[in-house]
Simulated assay, not measured.
Amino acid sequence: MGRAVLHWRVDMLDVGDGHRVWFEQAGQGVDALVLHGGPGSGCRPGHYDLFDLSRYRVTLLDQRGCGRSEPLASDTLDALDANTTTHLISDIEALRLHLGVEAWVLFGGSWGSTLAMAYAQAHPTRVRAMVMAGVATTAERDLRWLYGDIGNIFPEAYAEFCAHVPDVSDDPAHTGARVAAYASRLRDPALAQAAADAWCQWETAIFGGDIHASGSRYADPAFRLGFARIVTHYFTHAAWMDDHQLLRNVGDIAHIPCTMIHSRFDPSCPLRGPWELERAWPAASLQVLGGTSHSALDAEMVSAIRAATDVLRF
């Protein structure tokens, strides 16, 4: 784990609408695509540790507006234009055609699992298998949990989170209005950085972290600004999906093998979402870990994900 990786291809793909998406490849064998979380987190070198690079050709893709793609949401609000779930699905297809890939093994973590399912449901013949961790369906109840209900467990941090948008009630029932209020502030140059700092402090507080912790990606103010802008942009619009759309349409991907890995006490995404998916998805299995790990790059998650990709055979 954490070894040096030989990147044999690093490039940008013009996907139109003024966007160029960054991608990188390493390894050889079955094509696999990593879909990062956030939305707006970007890929990291540790994502290669989720695969045996002697068996997989792994592609990392930074989604519109983040990572090394252009333009960046931290630099300009133009990065939020033509930046929706439908656009990201189109980008994955454009990249597949550009690389000459017949079908992918998809890995998605957190928001990346939402995007993986949305892509697979749109293009079911282009997915060979899936592995997902910290599974998120981006349903309304899950957004309410993350930005509202879980405040009952972290009342101090939640009070600070809500205080930054004092015109919105701290009642979890007003979660949508709270996210929209943050999105509005993040578009105002005079208010944007302070709003990004408050948003990201909440994102880290539920995992016992702090945005100023040494070595944290949140320690970079530009990362905080771009991340918060993209997250609130997507979640204000419910990711441009109908509520429970992914669960309702799971029959479209019923034949695709999928391993879901989820921590029972994940503070970000309740276990109920992947549990319901497994019950409706004949080819899916759910592995429940103890503890609170959410990130695909947490040590326990890395081990479980790597075991899941190692056993896939084609």
Rank of each mutant, 00 (worst) to 15 (best):
V179T: 05
A180H: 00
E102D: 14
L146V: 14
G65W: 03
L106E: 04
F51C: 09
D31G: 03
H262G: 03
V101T: 09
A280M: 13
E24K: 06
S268P: 09
A136I: 00
Y48P: 09
V135W: 02
S285W: 07
F223N: 01
A157L: 05
S110T: 13
Y48M: 10
V127I: 01
T86Y: 07
Y147W: 15
W281L: 00
G108M: 03
V288L: 09
M241C: 12
S303P: 03
A79C: 01
Y234H: 14
H262F: 03
M260T: 00
G112Q: 07
A239G: 12
T84W: 11
P221W: 05
N83K: 00
R20V: 04
A116R: 08
L146W: 05
V179P: 06
D17I: 07
H294S: 13
P39G: 12
G134K: 01
A120G: 09
R9E: 15
A120M: 03
G65F: 03
P189N: 11
F51I: 11
L271C: 03
S41F: 14
I253S: 06
H98V: 04
A239Q: 10
E24M: 02
S54M: 08
L115W: 02
V30D: 15
F227Q: 12
H212G: 15
D14G: 07
V30R: 15
I230H: 08
A238W: 11
D142F: 10
E300Q: 00
G226T: 07
A129F: 09
S74N: 08
W104K: 09
A222M: 13
M132I: 07
F107H: 15
L77W: 07
G37M: 13
R144M: 05
V302F: 06
V10R: 15
R264Q: 12
G109Y: 08
Q63P: 09
A116L: 14
R224K: 00
G40I: 13
H123V: 12
G290N: 11
G65A: 06
L6P: 07
D52L: 03
R55A: 12
P221D: 05
R144Q: 01
F207K: 15
M12G: 02
Y48G: 12
L77P: 13
L246I: 05
L99I: 10
L60G: 04
H233F: 07
F207P: 09
D252R: 13
D17S: 12
S293M: 10
C162A: 14
